[in-house]
Amino acid sequence: MSETNQVVDVRARIEAEFQSAGVTGFLHVVDMDTGREIAAGADEPVVLASVFKVPLLVAFHRQAADGLLDPAEQVTLRPDDRTAGPTGVSALLDDVRMSLRDLTCLMITVSDNAAADLVLDRVGLDAVNATAAALGLRDTVIEVDGRGLHESLLTDAGVSDFAEVWARLDDPAVRARLRALDPLRTSRSTPRDMTRLLSMIWRDEAAPPDGCAAMRRLFGLQVWPHRLSSGFPYDDVVVSGKTGTLPTVRNEVGAVEYPDGGRYAVAVFTRSLLPIAVLPQADAVIGTAARLAVESLRRP
């Protein structure tokens, strides 16, 4: 089979997997060293959700390298003024004091919203977007922090509690009002932009080498095994990533590294057709689609 036919075949298989899982999927997978790629909707605008924390992390390390912030600076997060969320500092009841760099660890490894918003306050929204532009991410724009994202969901759905948002998703009029689910009205990117950014992190191009090494370490510590990692259940394959989740939105971007030195940047963004919070097949298809693409790129 020619390489062109092979790419067409694997793209069809990936799209069939998305359809079987009940999602609309957008994917880009690239060999970081050769540039060979598998693309399925790779240039379509997608909702970032918590994947916005990846360009934020890059901007943080670039500012640290330039002496614009001190990663070891100690900050205090108080319960009354920190962003809500189900993980990390967001879920705690008392004052928490830690360094900025430890907050970046929580915002990546457990997707802590409170940690991310404090880091974003220090770095600056404009600085994150300027960093994205400087790195050639033409379709990546961060519009809002975690608090703003959460508040927009409540406001647009006309509810007072996040759990109630799910209950109203059956109404097409409500879904249409939710800015957080519209890539033209919220923080957005494309799968191709995200694999470009990940490749630059892995090649020590997104920031100085020590900063890129620190970022790779955090992505490797992410705790969620049910999306990208599920497609590579091998002891000798290293999977690093960052998820993003909103009602009907399930994403993950990351890197897959093989013992022979092969390394692949992966970005998979999905929207489920069913407004159901627990949808295992929609999570698992992220790993399945990534595996199909990576295995295709590893064939001679």
Rank of each mutant, 00 (worst) to 15 (best):
R138L: 13
R138P: 06
D139T: 11
D139Q: 12
D139P: 01
I142P: 00
I142W: 00
I142D: 00
E143D: 15
R147S: 13
L149C: 12
L149D: 04
H150L: 14
E151S: 07
S152Q: 14
L153G: 08
L154G: 00
T155L: 12
D156K: 02
D156R: 02
A157Q: 01
G158N: 04
G158T: 03
V159C: 08
S160L: 12
D161S: 11
E164V: 10
V165L: 11
W166C: 14
W166G: 07
W166K: 05
A167C: 08
R168G: 08
R168A: 15
D170I: 09
D171T: 09
D171N: 14
D171P: 03
P172L: 11
A173H: 11
A173C: 09
V174E: 02
V174S: 04
R175H: 11
A176G: 09
R177E: 15
A180Y: 02
A180I: 05
L181A: 10
L181T: 09
P183Q: 05
P183E: 04
R185C: 13
R185D: 14
T186N: 05
T186C: 10
R188Q: 15
S189I: 07
S189T: 12
P191S: 03
R192F: 04
D193A: 04
M194F: 07
M194K: 08
T195M: 08
R196L: 07
R196D: 02
L197C: 02
L198P: 02
S199E: 13
S199M: 07
M200P: 03
M200C: 10
W202Q: 03
W202C: 06
W202M: 08
W202E: 04
R203M: 11
R203V: 06
D204I: 04
D204W: 00
D204E: 15
E205C: 03
A206Q: 01
A206Y: 05
P208Y: 03
P209I: 05
D210V: 03
D210R: 09
D210Q: 12
G211W: 06
C212Q: 09
A213E: 13
A213D: 15
A214F: 03
A214Y: 00
A214K: 01
A214N: 01
A214Q: 02
M215I: 14
M215V: 09
M215H: 05
R217C: 10
L218E: 15
F219L: 15
F219R: 03
G220N: 05
G220S: 06
L221N: 09
Q222D: 10
Q222Y: 05
V223M: 10
W224M: 14
P225K: 08
P225F: 07
P225W: 03
H226V: 13
L228D: 01
S229R: 14
S229P: 11
G231I: 06
G231W: 02
G231H: 08
